[in-house]
Write a protein that binds this DNA or RNA. Structure first.
Lengths: 346, 346
DNA sequence: CTGAAAGCGCTTACAG
DNA sequence: CTGAAAGCGCTTACAG
């Protein structure tokens, strides 16, 4: 005995069987026709009839049934560190654009909210709810339980030897940014670093250390601060930096949102950007556009990256791609948030 | 003959049958136990054994199979006008938080990118890929094809007689905002309106017209501008407004992002906010926090709303809620973007 | 050119 | 207390 009526929707919707009955053909014929596999197997007039009836009934195949049969959900997940950073909206948009061409849906999962994100991925994999993953700005240790991800995931801006990866040229971006500050004559350069232990931020730190040392500037612990990538924390950390006995004349930030925190702190202390304090960011999304004066920053093409990552994921899903690395060049945009340090501070 | 191996993943994952075999019980017993329906039907020791084996094998039930059987996907969609506005990230966060408690996933769909969004909803419904919908800031004409949404959707900040609705008290917010400007002495108040024809924005327009007329201020066409809710368009429109022969002394904006455009235009014209130009926004999200000087704006509790909307959706999914309206109070926050008009302009 | 049948992996009456 | 079986709605060999 059937036990339908679990949802109101189910009760109404036509199945391929309904179409078959009404078109006077078998259910398999309906499936064949509607999947475009009828070429030379079903007469044109039958095909026509099937299509017409399907149209009339507004028939659409059940995703669940198709998924069960085919083993594909047509859902991809974009795993990002933090939804509340608006740059990821651009990534999602890019990813969705690419996904639509393949008839896929994208769900966005934030690891920031959820320390148990690895578990969630494993669960999604185990319940076969998601076909593929884009992992953004996350490191995957080789010996991880995420081993099962092989063939179903691509990495962007993260370290992992086991997956196809889009690697951003953070090295270049950070170098350009710091060279710019140095060439303006800054020597008291602080680093406002993201408080997340992933490679993309470690690179920024390394470049900071190297360029300063190359310029013969000793590293100072009191010029290094950490904060979560959000406005409040960055504001507090920046306030701290600027409150030092000998405050920095420039702050190199790991993200635009952190630069926004610096702006806010400068404002609170009645300092002007860039006259009293130069600031550089990283990302160049909406936040950079909003800041006044306009932010000098490293430009990451987020939307294009989202798109590219999704395309890569599809390739990988089709025929497992070997682990490889494609390096994405970044830009560096000089705007109005940087200037030479004041004479008395230089 | 079986045709497995469609995906690498499928090939490996254990099924309830595997668990049954290894535990030496029938597949139905496994299902009963793992679904907590074994009370008094399966002996404790059998239950224990089943659970242990399931654990060992890392067994998780296939979502697709469960969905097909039960008619529920455990996916809800949040339909919003525009992803690129960062306020919606907060909505999503709230919605996800509530969804997690019910073991649901949320996908976010933007209607802005996609004029065909109604079609997409119908499709999602027809393919039974999504259980329920939260429709945000959208109007649904009664005679819509979305009739089939009945019982599967809730509305937030939108007009529709047929669905459970969370109605924001836009009326109050807009009134408070305009009263504030009027009480500061402004009489040359422009309206920078969102270029989307939905009720939530029509209310703002009506209140604008009414309050001005109540204050005995004639409506001027040259004080009304429209733009999409993004920085570029709002910037251009604001530039236009401020370039009038007799420019406004205050601009009432339909959204914070539009207020950001006004700030940018003011800056471009070397006008100071609020000395030369008062600005009020609507929303009070990240953008409001970023702006300098701090934005006076109507506060909408986006995250709480996302949460509440999701809870409402669950209630509605369980037992169809009759159409009803719950009105959400808004706040109005006076910060630094408003002041009395300059003497020579008042 | 078309149809009957197997099987994807579950849940849940039903029979014992 | 436990198991055999139906059925959710598809796709795709296979047989005719």
């Amino acid at each position: 005995m059937s036990d339908r009526h679990e949802t109101r929707v189910d009760a109404q919707l036509p199945t391929s069987f309904d179409v078959a009955k009404r078109a006077g053909v078998s259910q398999s014929t309906v499936s064949l026709v509607l999947n475009g596999k009828a070429a030379g197997r079903v007469s044109p007039r039958t095909q026509e009839a099937v299509r017409r009836v399907a149209q009339e009934l507004g028939y659409q195949p059940s995703m669940a049934a198709r998924t069960l049969r085919l083993g594909r959900t047509h859902v991809a997940a974009l795993i990002i560190p933090d939804v509340s950073n608006p740059v990821f909206a651009a990534v999602l948009q890019g990813a969705e654009q690419a996904a639509r061409l393949h008839d896929y849906t994208v769900v966005q999962v934030s690891t920031g909210n959820d320390p148990d994100w690895q578990q969630r991925i494993v669960h999604a994999l185990a319940t076969r709810s998601i076909d593929g993953f884009i992992l953004w700005a996350l490191d995957l240790p080789e010996s991880t339980q995420l081993e099962m991800l092989r063939g179903n995931a691509v990495i962007v801006d993260g370290y992992s030897p086991a997956f196809p990866s889009l690697l951003l040229d953070i090295e270049y971006g950070a170098t350009a940014s710091l060279r710019h500050l140095l060439s303006l004559g800054h020597r008291r350069i602080a680093h406002l670093a993201a408080h997340i232990d992933v490679e993309t931020f470690r690179v920024r730190q390394r470049v900071y250390e190297r360029l300063l040392s190359e310029a013969g500037i000793p590293l100072r612990a009191d010029y290094q601060a950490m904060a979560d990538v959000n406005l409040e924390e960055s504001f507090c950390a920046a306030l701290d930096l600027l409150g030092r006995p000998e405050p920095p004349t420039a702050i190199f930030c790991d993200d635009d949102l952190m630069a926004a925190g610096v702006y806010k702190a400068a404002r609170a202390l009645h300092m002007r950007v860039p006259a009293d304090l130069s600031t550089v960011g990283f990302c160049d999304g909406l936040v950079a556009q909003l800041l006044d004066p306009a932010l000098t920053t490293v430009a990451i093409p987020m939307m294009e990256l989202g798109q590219r990552a999704m395309e890569l994921l599809f390739s990988s899903l089709e025929t497992e791609l070997p682990p490889f690395v494609e390096t994405i060049p970044l830009g560096f945009v000089v705007r109005e948030s940087t200037a030479s340090p004041r004479e008395d501070l230089a």
